Simulated assay, not measured.
Amino acid sequence: MHIVGLSGSNVGSKTRTAMSVTMDFLTKKHPDAEVTMIDLANYEMVFSDGRDYRTYTGDTKYIAETIMAADAIIIGTPIFQASIPAILKNIFDLLPVNAFRDKVVSMFVTAGSAKHYLIVEHQLKPILTYMKAQVVETYVFMEEKDFSRNELINDDSVFRLERLVDDTYTMVNVLEKIRIEKDEAYDF
């Protein structure tokens, strides 16, 4: 099982901090999983121009191909101006419409205000559903007050991130079992 952690911003520290906590849980609790973390702050990406993702080069191609090869993606995103960052939207624009078919996608959000809690429901989940993702229904929402000096200090947020990791891992396993059962139902 290959799980990608996608830290969906090229600025700020809260999303990166929460992603580090999430990846630590993943590697400790599920050592059998192949884990890749992509922090968009560490890559030089070009904007999508409508081409097939395989024709891009450099970091853009690496990110797109890594996501396409994953069984699950855990997306961490901040909320800027009541929306997801442009760099994260660019990732979705680079990929084909069916990019997340048979992939589990879970997410967490870091925001400066509790007023942004519905951005996932109104923006991110519709994009992922359109791209055929199997979305983990519950997500983790964290605010400014949950962080201090580049550390996640809210125990409830830490617990919910751990649960998100477990839910993502479990959903991948369940979907794999369903696929195997469906395949075995055919004679050819």
Rank of each mutant, 00 (worst) to 15 (best):
L95T: 03
T77Y: 00
I178K: 08
S106R: 06
A33E: 12
V158K: 06
D102E: 13
A86P: 03
F25H: 09
P78I: 01
K145E: 14
D93W: 06
N10V: 07
K177S: 13
T57C: 11
G76N: 04
T66Q: 09
D39N: 14
V104W: 01
S148G: 09
F92A: 07
Y139R: 07
Y43Q: 10
A99Y: 03
D52W: 07
Y130T: 13
V46Q: 06
S7D: 10
K89F: 13
R160Y: 14
F80V: 07
V21E: 03
K145C: 09
V105M: 01
Y139K: 06
A86D: 06
A82Q: 05
D166M: 01
F47W: 15
T170R: 12
F80P: 00
N98V: 09
T22L: 15
V35H: 03
F141V: 08
V140I: 10
Y130K: 07
T110S: 05
K132M: 11
F108G: 03
K14T: 07
A70Y: 02
K177C: 06
K182L: 12
M107P: 02
K177E: 08
I87D: 02
E137R: 14
T22C: 15
V174K: 12
D156L: 14
V165E: 02
A86S: 15
Y186N: 10
S157G: 15
Y139V: 07
R149C: 12
D24Y: 06
F92G: 10
V165N: 01
T36G: 04
